Each structure stands twice: as structure tokens, then as C-alpha cells.
Simulated scan of single mutants.
Amino acid sequence: MTRVWFITGASRGLGRAFAEAALDAGDQVIASARNVEPLADLAQRYPEDLVRLPLDVTDRAAVFEGVQRAVAAFGRLDIVVNNAGVMLLGMLEEATEEQIRAHFDVNLFGAVWVTQAVLPHLRAQGGGRILQVTTMGTGGGFPMVGLYAAGKSALDSVSEAAAMEAEQFGVKTTIVQMGGYDTGLFTTGTTTTTPDPHYQELRDKLVEMWGDDAGPAPATAAPVIMELVDLPDPPRRLIVGAASYDMVQQDLQDRVEKYRAWEHLSRKAPG
């Protein structure tokens, strides 16, 4: 059975890879992005199965209108992928209010607006899948990317609640915690703060630690997503990336050990 996908942030990176994999599998795709011109080649290859939808997910009214157009395109939505995202790179003290609000408008509120807009349609048709693309770093912050982790962590928590609310309608949600892929997020998708010289030593150490490796190609993650959407009982959360899986497991273990180290103090309060 041909499935209909609605993918945000589909013009590049993971969104583009997921759209291409879905089309290659014989599915139909509504690919949304602020600029859909990079999808012209896919539109030529799949003229009957790909609809390009210009959309700014920060505009709630436009999102609801766009979802209506998406439903009208193929008559239904089966798989919704909230993938649109940007990066705010810099120390917390350096970030301006405008930068922070713009960042959350995309990474958190944009995904919330899409989820609100698609749920009535999925409920009416008796089910569907929602994939909320977050990150393997939602378990905690890290210097220079703390606001990115914060937005994705908030989406992680909201998605957990929404998943429990919507499962009674046959809607199955998976929080897809992506590892590091060469998506262009740190280049075309990045806003950089104005450096404060007080943080230069730490900044230099981080740049050296990260190195020049941009990570594997997004297309290498697409087979996992295709297998995920085929599962009759998908997981609520899924880490995508072998190295990222190991890092998350180590982080969880370290956190448990730190909690236990201070258990004696925690238990002094009755709450």
C-alpha cells in the first residue's frame, strides 16, 4: 500500500534523505521547506508522487493552511516527519533574545504547530505515524550547543505527552533521537553568536575536540527510518546512530552514578 508522507525541512539533510528514500520505496511525499527549489531534481524524477510545499513552520496559521493543502494533495497523511530545525551556536551569555526566540520558534514551536495541525486529520482517518526528530543530546546540555539541546529536549518532553494523548486514536509516535550526520546544520542552518573573549579558551578546546568530521551522510540513516515506519508496534524513542547509542548509554550510566553519590542528601527531604 502506498503511504503518504509529510516532511518538514525536506530541502536538505535528513529531510531530503527521508523524502528520497520514501519516494524510492514507491510512496508519495509532500516535502515542505522555506525554500523548495533544491527539490527540483526530485520533482523531475517523481512528478506524480512528490509535491513541493513552501512553508515556514514558525507561522502557525501558514502551518495549518499548509497541512490542509498537504491532505488535499493525496487525500490523506500516513507518516508525518517533524524534521525542520536550525542551530544556534554559542555560549548562553552571548546569545541575544532575538536569536533565542527565533531558535525556539523553529525547533520547538514549529514542530508543535505541525503536530497540532495534523492530529485532527490522523484522528479522523483512524491513525497514522508521527516521527519527532530530536537529538541524542536531549539528555543534557553541552557548551555552545546548550540552546539547541534545550529546544530539542522541550520537543522531546512535549512529544512524549502528545504520544500518550494520541495513541487512543491509533496515532503512533516515535521520538527519533538522531546522532551526528552531515546535514549542513552547522553551516547553512546555523546562527552564530558574537564571541565573548571571556570564553575563548573554552571555545578553542571545543573546536579542537569536535574536529572537522561532519559525520556520515544523511542517506545512511534513511534505511533505519524506513524500517521504523514498517514496524506495527514502533518504539516511543529510538536513537539513530551506533556511536550515538554508545554515548547515550554512557551518559545515562554516569548520571545514575552521580544521583547515587548524593542519594543520602536527596533522602533528607520527605517529598
Rank of each mutant, 00 (worst) to 15 (best):
R237Y: 14
M247Q: 14
S244C: 04
D230G: 11
S244Y: 02
L14C: 03
F6N: 01
Q253V: 13
E48F: 04
G184K: 03
R3F: 02
L88P: 09
Y259G: 00
S266Q: 13
R60A: 14
T138Q: 10
T187G: 00
V81F: 05
V112T: 08
V71Q: 05
Y259N: 07
A219R: 13
A17Y: 06
A10E: 00
D251I: 03
T188H: 14
D24A: 15
M178F: 07
K258Y: 11
I100L: 14
G127T: 07
D78Q: 02
D49A: 15
T115G: 10
T174F: 01
L23K: 03
V4T: 15
R3P: 01
R76W: 06
L23G: 00
G211F: 08
E257T: 12
N82F: 05
Q168M: 10
H198Q: 14
A70M: 01
A25K: 07
V176N: 00
G13V: 05
V29W: 04
A154G: 09
I79S: 00
A70S: 12
Q99C: 06
P120D: 10
E167Q: 15
D182F: 05
V81C: 08
G90Q: 07
A84W: 02
G271V: 10
H198V: 11
G180H: 13
F169S: 12
T187E: 15
K172Y: 03
A111D: 08
R60H: 12
I30Y: 01
T134F: 04
S157C: 07
L202T: 14
D246M: 09
L131K: 07
Q249F: 06
R123W: 10
I239E: 05
E165M: 11
R3I: 05
P235H: 03
M1W: 04
A95I: 11
D78V: 11
V4D: 01
A154C: 09
E227Y: 01
P197T: 09
T8D: 09
P232R: 09
V240A: 10
M87F: 13
L92K: 02
M1N: 12
A124Y: 05
K205Q: 15
P235C: 10
Q249W: 07
I130H: 07
V240F: 08
L185P: 01
Q168T: 13
G241M: 10
N35K: 09
A72Q: 14
V176K: 05
V106F: 02
G139S: 06
A161N: 13
Q249K: 15
M178G: 00
L88V: 11
